[in-house]
Design a binder for these strands. Structure first.
Lengths: 155, 155, 155, 155
DNA sequence: TTTT
DNA sequence: TTTT
């Protein structure tokens, strides 16, 4: 159940290779850094300006494994997920907050990448994978050729 | 698995009560008509113009049951789903196409409504749920534990 | 121009009244705190758990004025915007980061609210609007004529 | 102004080259056919099944010109727009309805494509471009290299 | 057929 | 701090 909608959609490129680690129960967790950017001409100087936004994306379980296996620095991806702000303590013991996108869908957009991976990814400290959620099978995101699909366009 | 993203997000009002029927295997199917509208001042006449767009939304299984039970003419809802164009034959035997939004998430936005219903809904003509997809049919929308991250963010 | 997609969609309730202030050039800036929440039954204890996520939303210019005028604590809103992480220094001079949603569309979802406000909102520290982007600041959201397509769709 | 949200997000491939034509007032109109697909293993036969959905996308003005110039059969694109159902008469004089996505944002996702084109696109039968809307600016979507952006990731 |  |  949910009250409210909390949805993020990103299309961007990885700034570095995914970092994959494993939780106590063996579930993969991947951290991915994604860049989106905008550019415009500055009104005063007339110069072209570019601003890059970096997004901290976290994936769990099978989605994290797929990220670790198929994504790398420079990869272009579609990400769908939700915002989550975590509280943590820095070395001085002060409260700090970090906002991340918890991904529940990922799609590789590079030429020969392919396929969507769609799972329920949540912090899941201990009690196994999940249930009613979604998920399924996982499996390789087998690059489906889209070759000559122009045959049966119904319009 | 999916290649590509096919996503629709609607916030609008029901033009009439949902129509719920049942498939051979007992799964509920709801048809819902949702209006979204835009208005603007006509550049020439200076008059305020309004254009309403009607969306044909279809829901399956538990989501359809919830729609049938809680939604009615005038209800405001958030809908997330995918586009699907069905081919059918009219009485003259001619091919016709109808585009619908197959909902996979619905949220009632009226004051005393409440909560999201989130399922996988697919045409499901007999052979039960399907596969590669996600989901699972109906049942309570039991979400997934997310560990103990703090709730109280001070801003 | 943009490379990549950076999009956030929220439906939630304001945790408190909007805070509106004005920049040096007189443009309104509104800060809004929006809650979205999820609840589920804990697998171990069997208890119903709820987790609320708080989103820091910032609006500019006309959109900020509308927020200040029409929104209040408890208001339900639809927000569309983009993620932006700002760097700042705390009193110890340490770098801190805060992630916000910069709204470009807002829609009040309460019974007697109404209508969308749709603008381009960007940090705009002095040198006015910007360029490559779209929009332009404030003013009436005068939409665009769409020809005379029929309104009454019979389904 | 709008009451309601009517939003479509697509990532898919063009099934054929864009078809560009011009309205009486010289504004470009592009029709684009976009495929998204899903595949899953049939529960009964155990075979892998694939279902392709075709989306009829229409673009106007500068966005249409960019589509005509840069997109071709097979191109992968991100599209954002709204649903619109048009009524028309077939040769027998019968009412027919066609649902299209009217794009207001497009982004080429192929390796060396690049950049977003973001405009207001609406049917615009006669009275010229529009106003308060957004966009314009136009200009080439100049492929911005994203080379080695790993330097300044702040996390 | 909704909603403002 | 909201909402159910």
């Amino acid at each position: 159940m949910a009250r409210g909608i909390n949805k993020v959609i990103l299309v961007g490129n990885l700034g570095r290779d995914p970092e994959v680690r494993y939780s106590a129960n063996g579930a993969a967790i991947a951290n991915v850094s994604i860049a989106t950017s905008e550019s415009w001409k500055d009104k005063n100087t007339g110069e072209q300006v570019e601003k890059t936004e970096w997004h901290r994306v976290v994936m769990f379980r099978r989605l994290a494994e797929i990220a670790g296996e198929y994504l790398k620095k420079g990869s272009k991806v579609y990400i769908e997920g939700k915002l989550q702000t975590r509280k943590w303590q820095d070395k001085e013991g002060q409260d700090r907050y970090t906002t991340e996108i918890v991904a529940n869908e990922m799609q590789m957009l590079d030429s020969r990448g392919g396929g969507t991976a769609n799972f329920d990814n949540n912090y899941d400290s201990g009690q196994s994978s999940s249930g009613g959620g979604a998920g399924s099978g996982g499996g390789q995101p087998e690059p489906v050729p889209m070759g000559d699909f122009d045959d049966d366009i119904p319009f």
